[in-house]
Amino acid sequence: MNKSESGGSYSLSQLQALESEAIFIIREVVAELEHPALMFSGGKDSIVMLHLAAKAFAPARIPFPVLHIDTGHNFVEVLQVRDQLVAELGVNLVVGSVQDAIDRGLVQEEPSGSRNRLQTRVLLDTAEKYGYNALMGGARRDEEKARAKERIFSFRDDFGQWDPKNQRPELWNLFNTRVHLGESIRVFPISNWTELDIWSYIAQEGITVPSIYYAHVREVFERNGMLFGVHEVCQPHANEPTFMETVRYRTVGDASLTAAVRSEAVTAQEIVVEVAATRITERGATRGDDQVSEAAMEDRKKEGYF
């Protein structure tokens, strides 16, 4: 940010460039779309989003609500941080509950027990109920192949569906935010960040994230080559012995299918070092659901998933 950094030329570090880009995008959403909301789960990417949103409008408050689609399969540590940050920043939290939708018979639990697909329906219903026409999310293009091709402003039809072959060209930083009534836009301000950028930023800014991202001792069992923590909604079968292991979570989604990884990293800086050296992608290491097929994510997005 300062002149001395590169011998007299005005230049930004890669994190500063990404930060400025994300803030520009968040402001553009608020300037041009009437009813935005920020998807907020309490996971690291959405926490970084919230941090950026706070900077974008300082010293004013964040001018939109945050929306959590609650699968009911939560890690308590994540909900605690969610509530803590919401209180600190004085933002309005709206929760769309999958459990509630199941109880009311709006959706049916899948045989696998995974609530990933059910989330989509609850998300679309909640957005419609509150009239949100722009949903910002913390998805990154490095996460997955279909995401690598998705625009920053990703247009959805009135069923919330994505048409990958019919995306609006996105030129310079001139974002086309127009939607007809009933249609909506998903916006991904941190599209260009990688997992490493996220952790470098968390370390640089001293951002609070749920404790389960850091190494801790936990009772786990092995399934499909992955380590699952024993949890109310994630129980070992008879042939899956449990043991104590030092692990951390790389992602904190649905507790019934998010795996932990072996790690000794107890600070954000140590995680930066670990992520820089890791040879397995975030999803490959921890998501039971994305291993199903090459196009699993693309298909879910077409249905309206984030």
Binding site: K145, A148, N192, A295
Partner: peptide, 22 residues
């Protein structure tokens, strides 16, 4: 670098894809 189902099936690239490395 072939991200979308249609691209994999047809063996061609249709859309801009973004990649990251450092």
């Amino acid at each position: 670098t072939d991200g979308l189902r249609a691209e994999r099936e047809q063996g061609i690239t249709i859309d801009v894809a973004y990649r990251y490395f450092s």
